[in-house]
Write a protein that binds this DNA or RNA. Structure first.
Length: 616
DNA sequence: TTAGGGTTAG
């Protein structure tokens, strides 16, 4: 086969020259002029195609005029079809076997590849057309690669990404800053690609705010929030001005860490530097304030904001839910519908979790129905999960079970674990045992399944069985996810894990823990030793409880903060019932407000009570 | 005519 690489562009030149020459020598109304008029009218029609039926009509018109092989028309057709989210329609027409392949050019392929790269469901096609392009010998240009790399990012395959990156280098487009930035982003989105991203990033001769955002975004996506903040500090040091997207990412890292002081600093930085506060940045601020403990500030920002999107509403609904303010979340949801914003599936997850956290069972049932019937949203496993959680928390175990049996999809392990915890809490031990055994067969390497079974045996007083579970876990090499607690002090974040001795103040912290223990006992606190998994004696169990990361962080805070000031801590797991009980006592004994953000929600401890009402 | 990084849940 003759190489089309040289052939296609040549042919284009011939066509263009011929058209220009003949039109110069032909009087008006000649066939060539009318062709150009037809071409112009097709382009204008395509430009105004805002619905698919209009596009189909225009297609017929194109065929009638015989313009199906006009490159300008084809490209415009692809672009219009892509805007209407039906690029398949255009590509099947353009790349049909009857088409004149000599008309395919870089711009046409770029248009089609861009369209597929933008979709969430057909990114493979972007790569497919990229390969077709190379197969026809049509050369990619510097605009092609951002699209192709974006498609790779969406697919998340490192091998694919590496091979495309190889082509980028081969064709010599790796010196273009747009291509470099997209390469960094692409590697950040691939599983195991972060180090490749960093290598490209480190080797870039000039970094702009997009490059820094791409890399910071990579760390945020992995949950490496401290690294993200570290990189942001470096960005400031080298004097690149962050823009609104950089700030969204930094806020996202603050939210993840629960770094309230840092988050507030970012807000003042935005004001001081005059960073443009667009909707997305406002959303990120609202989310940060809500999740760092100041939901009223989040509400204020929300009220002052114009141009709210569904994300804005959802952020504040979720924020209220996390603080146990379920009724306010429900009324905000109603307000949202009232203003004509249609809820999506995520908004319903937020709303249903609000109902679940605040025990609003009737509301939960009502909105679950409303979601399906009025808003025609097919419930996903997450929605079912919220409902099961809601029934279980309210002690309606039978109802939860029935609900799971009537679900139109298989329950996932998360739903089953919710059910098992409820069985344990409400005495349905046999049932809990059988579901857990099933779960362990399906998920033999998931540590928390064993913990659940072990807890059930403890409650049944089947100590030998409990010991066997422990042995089985050791044999299979399972480890408990270590609980950790973070606390922010003087712009630094300190992290504690259970039994942590790495801290410089370790000796004082443990002395403080011992002192706290004595004070707690004096005030009437009894340790919940049944929470301890190990097969050790009672005194050692108490000791194990005292070394929980939460207690270490509180001791650290009592040592290093002014008396009477509030203590804010962030946990990676849900707060255990012993720590919950102890923290209530501590808030009273030491006269401190203690704000705990756990995996699910906020707990405000004050004068011996918790805002969750012991319901979490 | 064509290009890069972002927010909500689980």
């Amino acid at each position: 086969m003759q190489s089309p690489a040289t052939r296609t562009p040549k042919l284009f030149r011939t066509i263009t020259t011929a058209t220009v020459t003949t039109s110069l020598h032909n009087p008006p109304n000649s066939p060539t002029t009318s062709n150009r008029v037809a071409e112009q009218s097709c382009l204008a029609l395509l430009h105004s195609c805002n619905t698919l039926p209009k596009l189909f009509q225009t297609h017929t018109y194109i065929l009638k005029l015989g313009l199906q092989n006009n490159p300008l028309v084809l490209t415009k057709f692809a672009s219009a079809s892509s805007d209407l989210e039906d690029i398949d329609y255009a590509s099947s027409f353009i790349f049909s076997p009857r088409s004149d392949t000599r008309l395919y050019d870089t711009f046409l392929f770029n248009t089609v590849i861009r369209a597929y790269a933008q979709t969430t469901h057909s990114r493979e096609n972007a790569l497919w057309f990229y390969r077709v392009m190379l197969g026809y010998g049509v050369l990619p240009n510097k605009f092609t690669y951002p699209f192709v790399l974006k498609a790779c990012a969406g697919l998340g395959s490192l091998n694919l990404g590496k091979s495309v990156h190889g082509s980028v280098v081969k064709f010599g487009f790796d010196d273009d800053v747009h291509v470099q930035n997209t390469t960094v982003h692409m590697y950040c989105c691939c599983n195991g690609g972060i180090n490749y991203a960093r290598k490209v990033f480190d080797e870039m001769p000039k970094l702009d705010s997009v490059s820094w955002s791409a890399m910071i975004g990579g760390y945020v996506r992995l949950g490496w929030s401290s690294d993200a903040i570290g990189l942001f500090r470096k960005m400031q040091m080298v004097g690149v001005r962050p823009d609104e997207i950089t700030m969204v990412l930094v806020l996202s890292a603050c939210t993840d860490l629960g770094a309230f002081e840092l988050g507030k600093w970012v807000e003042s930085y935005i004001e001081k530097e005059g960073v443009q506060k667009n909707v997305e940045l406002c959303n990120a601020l609202i989310d940060m304030f809500a999740k760092c403990g100041d939901v009223d500030k989040a509400l204020k920002l929300f009220r002052d904001m114009s141009g709210r999107t569904i994300v804005t509403w959802t952020s504040v609904i979720v924020g209220l839910a996390m603080h146990g303010r379920g009724l306010e979340a429900v009324s905000l949801f109603e307000e949202m519908i009232g203003t004509g914003v249609a809820p999506d599936d995520v908004a319903f997850i937020g709303l249903l979790s609000a109902c679940s956290h605040s025990g609003l069972v009737e509301n939960g049932r009502k909105y679950f129905d409303l979601m399906i019937k009025r808003f025609k949203i097919v419930p996903k496993i997450e929605h079912y999960g919220c409902m099961v959680d809601m029934f279980c928390r309210a002690g309606l175990v039978k109802e939860a079970l029935e609900f799971v049996q009537n679900m139109h999809i298989e329950p996932n392990p998360i739903v089953l674990r919710t059910l098992i915890s409820a069985c344990r809490a409400h005495g349905e031990l046999k049932l809990g045992e059988s579901i857990t055994k099933q779960l362990i067969r399906n998920e033999p390497m998931h540590e928390s399944n064993y913990v659940l079974l072990s807890n059930i045996y403890a409650k049944m007083s089947h100590w030998e069985k409990k010991t066997k579970i422990r042995e089985l876990m050791d044999k299979r090499g399972m480890k408990k996810i270590p609980g950790s607690t973070m606390i922010e002090l003087d712009n630094k974040i300190y992290e504690f894990v259970a039994g942590d001795k790495s801290h410089g103040q370790s000796k004082e912290i443990y002395e403080m823990v011992d002192e706290m223990g004595r004070e707690l006992k004096r005030a009437g606190y009894a340790p919940t030793t049944s929470e301890v998994l190990q097969d050790i004696d009672e005194e050692d169990k108490e000791d194990a409880l005292n070394r929980h990361s939460e207690k270490l962080a509180i001791a650290f805070a009592l040592l290093n903060t002014q008396p009477g000031t509030p203590i804010r801590i962030v946990k990676n797991l849900r707060v255990c019932s012993d720590c919950h009980s102890a923290t209530k006592f501590i808030s009273k004994i030491y006269n401190r407000e203690i704000v705990v953000r756990d995996r699910n929600r906020f707990h405000y401890f004050k004068e011996g009570l918790c805002s969750c009402g012991d319901f979490w």
